[in-house]
Design a protein around this nucleic acid. Structure first.
Length: 431
RNA sequence: GUGAGAGUAGCUCAGCUGGUUAGAGCACCAGAUUGUGGUUCUGGGGGUCGCGGGUUCGAAUCCCGUCUUUCACCCCA
C-alpha cells in the first residue's frame, strides 16, 4: 500500500535538507551576532493557550488532539505563547533585557497555497523587558541584517513600519469610536491588496461621513512620518506615537539600514495583541506575501498571567523566504554542496581490507571518508568518488603492500602524490 | 469553507478531432574502461496514463464522481 505525504507537508531529501539547514543556520548565526540567546519549548501545548488571545475561530486552524488523560492539546501554531509562558515562569530570575530567539517547527491547519504550508519553520526573535523604541528598531534591524546577509538589497525588499498606537490615536482624533477600531484595522489592512478605487469604495461603505473618509484616505497615503503633523491634530497620544516612530527610524538610519525602511500606515498586522510599533518586510514587487512581520506586544505577558512587562518581536517563516531567494538566484548559489574529504579506493579487490582500515583511520582523525561497496575497477570507484564530490582520493595499490604507501589524488587538479600512510595521517592531524 | 486550473516513468513534459505493443530529455543502473573520475557512446530497468464508474466495437484521450495538487478568496498568529 502506497501512502502519500500529508497535505501541506514537505519531504526534505538531501538537496532540500541542505537548503533548509543553510537557511536555519543563517538565522541562528545572525541571532547570535545580534546578541540573542536560543530557547525552545515543546511542540505541543494546552489547546487553551491558543484560545486565550484569539478565541475559538483559531481552533479550526489548529492541529489539536486529546491525550490519553483527556487533556486537550494542540500542536504549536506559533511560539510566542510558549515564550510568554516560559518567561512568566521564571520572570524574577531572568536577567534583563531578555533577548531570545528560536527556530520552531510550527503547524497550522490552513489550506496550503503559495508561500504557506501546513508545516513550516519560523525564526522568532523577541526582546522582553524594554519599552524603548530602540528595542523595536533592533528587532527590525536584526531581521534586515539577515536578509542583507543572504544578499537581498534595498532594491529587493522593503521594511514597512507603522504603529498601532499611532493608528488608534489618529483614528480617534478623526472621530472614530473606540469600538470601531478593530473593524477599521481589518479594513486598513486590506489597502495594499486592493486597487485604489476598490479600497475607496470599501472605505466609503464603512465610513459614511465623506469628510472623515477623505481624511482617513489622506492619512493612508502618507509615506513619511514627517508629513504626519500637517494632517492630524497632534494630541498627546499621537505626539508620543510619532516620536516613538521617529526614534525607530532614526535608530535604523544610524545602524545603516535606513534605505530598507519606509513608513507605511497600511501595515496593521492581523492579530489584536500588538500595541505599538508594527512592521512587515515585503519583496519590493509586492508579489509575495510578507517575508516577516512583528511588532510590540506590551500586554501579552500580563494576559498570560504574568506581570505587565513590555515586549517586542518578529517572526519570519521559511516558505516565502525560500521562494524569494530562489527567484533572486540567491539560494542554490549559496547553499554549500555535499562535500566529502576523502574517498578511499583500492586498485584490486584483494586490497579491500586495507581500504577499510585506512578509511577508518581517516574517520578516527575527524575526516569524512567513504569507500565503494562494489569492488569493481578503479575507474568505477573514482567515478563514485566524483559523484560524491570528494576532495581527495586515496588509492591503495601495490605500493601499499610493498611500502605502506598511499596514492593521494587531488580530484580538482588531478595531481597525485605517493606518501607513507603513517606520515600522511600524522600530517592531517597536525594541520 | 468558496471558486478556478492541473494530474501520463523518480523529475520536466509530448502523446492530433477516441484507433495496434504509451514516448522523449534528465536522473538511476550497467557496459565500452581488470591501476585513474568529471566528457562521450551503447544498452537496461522503471508506467494498473491519480482512483472509481459511465459512453463506445475500442478510452491516456469524451462524460460523471472522487482523491491529490497548484493558484486565488476567507484567514493569516
Amino acid at each position: 500500500m502506497k501512502i502519500p505525504p500529508v497535505k501541506g507537508t514537505r519531504d526534505f531529501y538531501p538537496p532540500e535538507m541542505a537548503r533548509r539547514n543553510w537557511i536555519i543556520d543563517g538565522w541562528k548565526g545572525i541571532s547570535i551576532r545580534n546578541g540573542f540567546e536560543e530557547y525552545d519549548g515543546p511542540i505541543f501545548e494546552y489547546l487553551k493557550m491558543y484560545q486565550i488571545k484569539s478565541g475559538d475561530e483559531i481552533v479550526e486552524q489548529l492541529f489539536s488532539l486529546q491525550d490519553r488523560g483527556g487533556r486537550d492539546l494542540a500542536i504549536r501554531p506559533e511560539i510566542t505563547p510558549t515564550l510568554a509562558r516560559m518567561v512568566n515562569q521564571q520572570i524574577n530570575a531572568l536577567p534583563r533585557p531578555i533577548k531570545w530567539f528560536s527556530v520552531p517547527r510550527l503547524c497550522r491547519a490552513e489550506r496550503p497555497q503559495k508561500g504557506r504550508l501546513r508545516e513550516f519553520f519560523q525564526w522568532n526573535i523577541d526582546i522582553i523587558g524594554i519599552d524603548s523604541p530602540e528595542a523595536d528598531a533592533e528587532v527590525i534591524f536584526t531581521s534586515l541584517d539577515y536578509l542583507r546577509r543572504v544578499g537581498l538589497t534595498a532594491a529587493d525588499v522593503r521594511a514597512k513600519i507603522s504603529s498601532r498606537r499611532l493608528l488608534a490615536s489618529v483614528l480617534r482624533g478623526m472621530g472614530i469610536e473606540n469600538s470601531c477600531l478593530d473593524a477599521m484595522y481589518a479594513l486598513l489592512d486590506k489597502k495594499a491588496k486592493l486597487p485604489a478605487d476598490a479600497f475607496d469604495a470599501l472605505l466609503a461603505e464603512h465610513v459614511p461621513d465623506k469628510e472623515q473618509a477623505t481624511r482617513i484616505s489622506d492619512f493612508m497615503a502618507l509615506d513619511s512620518i514627517d508629513d504626519l503633523q500637517r494632517l492630524v491634530s497632534a494630541d498627546d497620544d499621537t505626539r508620543v506615537a510619532v516620536e516613538q516612530l521617529q526614534n525607530v527610524f532614526a535608530t535604523l538610519e544610524l545602524m545603516g539600514v535606513g534605505d530598507y525602511c519606509v513608513f507605511d500606515p497600511s501595515i496593521v498586522r492581523g492579530l489584536a495583541y500588538y500595541t505599538g510599533v508594527v512592521f512587515e518586510i515585503h519583496d519590493i514587487v509586492g508579489e509575495l506575501r510578507a517575508i516577516c512581520g512583528g511588532g510590540r506586544y506590551d500586554n501579552l505577558l500580563r494576559d498570560f498571567g504574568g506581570p505587565s512587562i513590555p515586549a517586542t518581536g518578529m517572526g519570519m517563516g521559511d516558505c516565502v523566504l525560500e521562494i524569494l531567494l530562489h527567484q533572486k538566484g540567491l539560494l542554490d548559489s549559496q547553499v554549500p554542496p555535499r562535500r566529502l574529504e576523502f574517498f578511499v579506493a583500492c586498485a584490486d579487490a584483494t586490497l579491500a581490507k586495507a581500504m577499510y582500515a585506512v578509511a577508518a583511520r581517516l574517520r578516527a582523525g575527524g575526516q569524512s571518508a567513504n569507500f565503494s561497496y562494489k569492488l569493481g575497477g578503479l575507474s568505477k570507484q573514482l567515478k563514485e568518488a566524483s559523484s560524491q564530490n570528494a576532495r581527495r582520493c586515496i588509492i591503495i595499490g601495490q605500493e601499499y603492500v610493498d611500502k605502506q604507501e598511499l596514492i593521494v589524488k587531488d580530484m580538482a587538479s588531478g595531481e597525485q602524490s605517493q606518501v607513507h600512510v603513517d606520515r600522511f595521517l600524522a600530517q592531517l592531524s597536525g594541520t
